[in-house]
Computed example of a mutant assay.
Amino acid sequence: MGISKLKVLILLILCSFSLMNCQKKKMEEKYNWLGTISAPQEYPMEIYQGAIVGNDFTYSFDSIWGTQNTGWGNEGGTMSVDTETMDLPHQLEFTWYSLVEKKFFTGKWDLDQKKIKNLFDEGFVDQDTRKRTTYNSFVVGLAPKGRVVLWIKGAGNQKEVGVFQAHDTIITKEKAYENAQYMFNDGFADRMLNDPEYKTFKPEIREKIKEEGYPEPDIYDIYREKFNWKPVVILPEGSVWIDFGFNNYNGEQENLFAKTLDDNTYKNRAVPKFCGFYWRDKNKNRYAVWVDSFDEKEIFELFQKLGKDEEIDFTIKVNEDNTRVFLSLVTEKEELSITKAKIRLSRKIE
C-alpha cells in the first residue's frame, strides 16, 4: 500500500473514532427528569395547561393536576412517562387560575439551558448512598401576581434556576377545553376557598388565614433575598457533628455532610425555614435536633438587621447534657438571639 493511501486510511479511522465519540457524547448528554408543581399553602392555584419543553420531549400539565398548594418550594405529585432519557428543557410555558385572586395568568419563557446543564452535570453526592447522583425533577412554582419560579430537585438538594413574570389573561368558558370547564362554574373559587368540605386548606392554614389574612403577595420576592451565612453547631466537648440539612424560605434546599460539611463556608443563601442535624456525643451516642419552624417576622428582622454585607454564623448551641438548644445569629460585631423557633431535641438514638 502506498504512503498516501495509508495516510487516507489512518485519517478515515481517526474520523470514524471522532464521529463515534461525538455520537457517544451526544447520547450521554441525555438526562432523566420529570416535572411537578409548587404553590403556597395560602394561595391555591388551579392548573389550566403548561409544559416544560425540550428538543425531543415535552412534559405537559393540564387540568388533571387540579388544585395545587403543597407549600412554597414543596413539590406536588408527578406523572410517569414512557421516555427514559431526554434532552434538558429550553422553554417553560404555563397557564393557571389563581383562586384567591380570581385571575388567570399565562406566560412563555426561555430557560437558561447552559446553567441547568452545568448543575445537572455537576450533580451532588447522595447522603444515603454516598454515590454521586444528580437532579431528577423540575419544580414549577406559581405565586400571586403571576410570579413563577423554577427549581431543580434531587435527593436532599433543590436549587432555583429561573424566575419569571406571567401576565394576567382572560379565558372564557366558551373557549376553554372540556376538562377545564369546571373552573368556570359560578362560585367555584369561593367554594374551594371557603367550604371546609373541599379541604383545600389544612385546618391550621385555614385558621391562620382567618386570623391574619392572606400573606402579602410581595413576600415571595422577599423570600428570595440572600444573606452571607453558614451554619455553625456548638456541641458538648468530645461530640462530633455528623450532618446538616436545611430548607430556605426561597424554596432552595441543601444537605451538608462529609466533605461538604468539612468545606462548610459562608455563601449567599436565603433565610432558613427549617433545619436539622445529627451528632454523636463523647460516648458515641447519637442525637438529633430539628428546628421545625421559625417565627417568620423575627427571623427576617434579625437577618435584615445584620445586613447582606456581614458574614453571619447561624449558630445552634446544644447544652452539656443534651437537653436544651440555643439559636442565634453571630457576626464579628454582635450576637442576636433567636427566641421564637419551634425546636425538637431527640433522646439518645439507638
Results as ranks from 00 to 15, higher is better:
M1H: 08
M1D: 07
L11E: 05
L12D: 00
I13C: 08
S18Q: 04
N21A: 11
C22V: 11
M27V: 00
E29Q: 13
Y31E: 01
N32I: 02
W33N: 02
G35N: 01
S38G: 12
S38I: 04
Y43W: 15
Y48D: 00
G50P: 04
G54F: 04
T58E: 07
Y59T: 01
S60Q: 12
S60H: 06
I64F: 09
T70M: 09
W72M: 14
G76R: 06
V81M: 11
T83F: 05
E84N: 14
T85H: 11
P89M: 00
P89R: 00
Q91P: 02
F94N: 02
S98R: 07
S98V: 02
L99K: 13
T106L: 00
G107P: 04
D112F: 03
I116W: 01
K117C: 06
D121P: 05
D121K: 15
D121R: 08
G123V: 09
F124H: 07
F124S: 12
R130E: 13
G141W: 07
P144L: 02
V149M: 05
K153P: 00
K153M: 12
A155D: 14
E160H: 01
V161D: 01
G162C: 08
Q165V: 01
I170K: 15
T172D: 10
T172K: 07
M183Y: 13
F184S: 10
D186F: 09
G187C: 08
A189K: 11
L193S: 07
D195E: 13
P196L: 11
P203I: 01
P203V: 01
P203N: 02
I205T: 15
E207F: 04
D218M: 07
D218W: 05
E225C: 02
W229G: 04
V232P: 02
V232S: 05
E237R: 13
G238R: 06
S239G: 08
I242K: 14
Y249F: 15
N250M: 10
L261C: 06
D262I: 10
D262R: 14
T265R: 15
T265L: 06
P272F: 15
K273C: 05
F274P: 00
F274I: 13
Y278R: 13
D281M: 03
K282S: 14
Y287G: 00
A288N: 11
D295L: 10
D295K: 01
F300E: 03
F303P: 04
Q304L: 03
K308E: 12
E311C: 12
I312R: 09
N322W: 11
T331S: 10
E332C: 03
K333I: 10
I338D: 02
K342D: 14
L345T: 08
R347A: 09
K348D: 06
K348R: 14
I349D: 06
I349R: 07
E350W: 08
E350D: 13
